[in-house]
Design a binder for these strands. Structure first.
Length: 688
DNA sequence: CACCCAAACTTTTTT
DNA sequence: AGTTTGGGTG
């Protein structure tokens, strides 16, 4: 009943490994090393489908993926395979629902809510997103008096990054500082105090940040009774992108499933690119040895995505690493265009070249959607975006600024969140400060008053503050009160909040018209969620990836070019790929150059970028490129040296071209030659 | 105490 | 370029 035609030998082995039979029900731990484009998702989908058809209960399957998009896709593919197979056998089919799937963070959030009672946690905790966390850091930073020191204290974002490293890597503060933030080393004591306050403050406000979700869940997994119960709930556990898990995530897995029964992890050590989030490649490399007997290992090496010339390039790049990666990819598609290294003058020419090539390919029948421009940092596409807009070429950008991070969207969201959780100080301050006449002090006063009155919004009627602001506070509090107690239907809660927000928006922004559109869109999105709580949690855990991603995307059948950071392009594939700014300082990034491990991560990042391409691959090598740093008056261009990854061996896999084509001094026409007219004089002429 | 303006400083990738 | 801090004013 297994569809063997669609799978190769290793894939088939992965799929059938440990599937339940009449007399055998064990599934020992399994590691699948799946190189780029080797049909990983397909294999996982088949495995899921196969398990279900062999009698496994869907509700006892746990699927953990890296991004929500990936998990949704996995589930729908598995569904399709089950359906197809059953149809073929003329059996009836009803859709399979895999209830337990999602990112580590979202699974953790769900488990924590369920077991909150058992671990002494309020089950109605809020989840803070990054900027909430940063805001809280900032407040405490001031409170502890660190903003007035003679030497500059790290900024809120830096503080948060340091904290996050400590938690996710379970490392000592001093180690983290020495290794990743040497310029902050002197502040160890202050940071320790700050992080302690931060942790207390979160407890007080019943908030968990991203890291807490993993941290709490990790501690929960160490509690025998709970771990046992959770192990009973799941027969099969599949974890995707295992190379990007950190110590905490691996700890959670081993806490819940110590013997690895039913556990399958999938990943590729050559695609580990989340070291900055404390991902640890050792997790995947050391996985087999965690168990006795050791876990079974299957490698997928046949690539179905790219032709051999692209793979040769990727393989050569990886072979020059000191890391010794597990797989070398090969493809049945032997021929295809040689990857190009395109020399251009600067990012302007870069944009020009890309626009021309992209349009030419479209003429030749390749949809824009099948072409992607990838880059290291999201601002790298700025110049290109200008050019695309100018030429009316539609595009969607993944990575970079998110819809939810826009100030006005955040404002409304905070109103809703405060209504949801009256103790949510960060939201409260943000919302209160929006009202005219209310600054930090008054906001504090109001919040203290609310605290004193057991967080009952109705009590704010009698708060004593200055005349003008008072009316605004009272009418806001009234609405929040009604929302908190769900006296207003969930469907119209955001609409009501938007009504209150609208005048404030008009007051502070010239482009309020556009911004209000975003608010309406937010309201629209919220309708898809069953309850306020789920809306808030899921939105912070799985924010829409791009503005085109929103509200079921009305332009779904339009054709558009893909712009994406490499990190966000993970798991994707495109017919043609353009990679921006391949130059030393960017590939590898200059901040990574100090550390050998970091450089290797840059190499893997480049590998990920290369292996997205099915057919054409253009590496753009600008002579100089634009960087936003440095003093604002100077020339913002930086001369990038040749990337150290483009060694002689690597260059043998690449064709070098120049754009515009090198032609010996054709007519320069009249540009930049000597003046034959005096424009200044002509302009002055109007005034006699 | 809120608000406005000028000066200083910054440095990627994401759940 | 955009955010954060500091100082001055009402």
């Amino acid at each position: 009943m297994l569809d063997t035609v669609a799978l190769n030998k290793s894939q088939l082995e992965s799929v059938s490994f440990g599937a339940p039979t009449a007399n055998e029900k064990t599934h020992p731990p399994l590691l699948i090393i799946a190189g780029a484009g080797t049909g990983k998702t397909n294999t996982l989908a088949h495995k899921t489908a196969h398990l279900i058809m062999s009698g496994a209960s869907p509700e006892k399957i746990l699927l953990m993926t890296f991004a929500r998009r990936a998990s949704a896709e996995l589930a729908s593919r598995a569904n399709r395979i089950v359906e197809q197979t059953l149809r073929k056998e003329n059996k009836s089919y009803k859709p399979v629902k895999i209830e337990w799937m999602g990112t580590f963070h979202s699974i953790a959030a769900r488990l924590l809510r369920e077991y909150a009672g058992a671990i002494g946690l309020e089950s109605d905790f809020s989840v803070m997103d990054k900027s909430d966390s940063a805001d809280m850091m900032d407040v405490l930073r001031h409170e502890l008096g660190y903003s007035k020191t003679h030497r500059r204290f790290p900024k809120k974002k830096t503080c948060l990054d340091i904290y996050s490293r400590c938690v996710n890597g379970q490392s000592a503060l001093q180690d983290v500082l020495d290794k990743h933030f040497p310029y902050c080393s002197d502040w160890a004591d202050e940071l320790t105090a700050l992080f302690k306050r931060y942790t207390e403050e979160k407890l007080e406000q019943v908030c968990l940040d991203y890291d807490d979700l993993l941290l709490y869940c990790f501690h929960m997994s160490q509690v025998k009774e709970i771990a046992n119960e959770i192990r009973e709930r799941f027969d099969y556990i599949m974890v995707d992108e295992y190379q990007d898990t950190n110590v905490l995530q691996a700890g959670i897995l081993f806490g819940f499933f110590p013997d690895g029964q039913g556990l399958t992890v999938v990943g590729d050590d050559a695609q580990s690119i989340y070291g900055f989030r404390s991902a640890n490649v050792d997790n995947i490399l050391g996985f087999p040895d965690q168990f006795t007997p050791k876990a079974k290992v299957i490698s997928l090496e046949q690539n179905y995505r790219s032709h051999q010339k692209i793979l040769d390039l990727a393989n050569t790049l990886l072979s020059e690493s000191s890391e010794g990666y597990k797989v070398a990819l090969y493809s049945d598609k032997k021929s295809g265009p040689l990857p190009k290294l395109v020399n251009i003058e600067d990012d302007r020419k870069q944009a020009e070249y890309i626009v021309e090539s992209v349009l030419a390919s479209r003429e030749a029948g390749v949809d824009l959607k099948q072409q992607a421009v990838l880059f290291r940092s999201s601002y790298h596409s700025d110049r290109l975006e200008l050019e695309l807009t100018r030429r009316n070429i539609p595009y969607v950008k993944h990575g970079g600024l998110k819809f939810l991070e826009a100030a006005h969207v955040k404002d409304v969201l905070c109103m809703l969140r405060w209504a949801d959780n009256p103790k949510h100080k960060i939201s409260a301050y943000r919302v209160l400060k929006l009202l005219p006449g209310i600054g930090p002090k008054t906001a504090e006063k109001i919040f203290d008053y609310l605290t004193l009155h057991h967080f009952d919004f109705a009590a704010l009627d009698s708060v004593s503050i200055g005349g003008e602001a008072k009316a605004a506070v009272i009418s806001l509090a009234k609405l929040l009160h009604e929302i908190h107690h769900n006296r207003i239907d969930w469907n119209s809660q955001l609409t009501k909040l938007a009504e209150i927000y609208k005048p404030l928006l008009e007051e502070s922004y010239d482009d309020h018209f556009v911004r209000y559109g975003d608010i309406e869109q937010l309201t629209e999105i919220s309708q898809q969620y069953k309850s306020r709580e789920r809306f808030l949690t899921e939105l912070t855990l799985d924010p829409p990836q791009s503005s085109g991603d929103l509200a079921g995307s009305p332009h779904i059948d339009d054709d558009f070019l893909i712009l994406s950071t490499i990190h966000s392009a993970k798991g994707q594939e495109y017919k043609n790929v353009f990679l921006l700014n391949v130059a030393d300082g960017n590939f590898p990034n200059e901040y990574a150059c100090g550390d050998k491990r970091a450089i290797e991560e840059e190499r893997r990042l480049l590998n990920v970028a290369l292996t997205r391409a099915k057919n054409e691959l253009h590496l753009m090598q600008p002579l100089k490129y634009w960087v936003p740093e440095q003093q604002s008056w100077g020339d913002k261009h930086v001369y990038g040296g040749k990337s150290r990854f483009l060694t002689d061996q690597v260059m043998k896999c690449i064709e070098v071209i120049h754009y515009p084509r090198l032609t010996p001094n054709t007519e320069e026409s009249l540009r930049s030659t000597k003046a034959i007219a005096d424009i200044k004089k002509m302009v002055l002429g109007q005034w006699g």
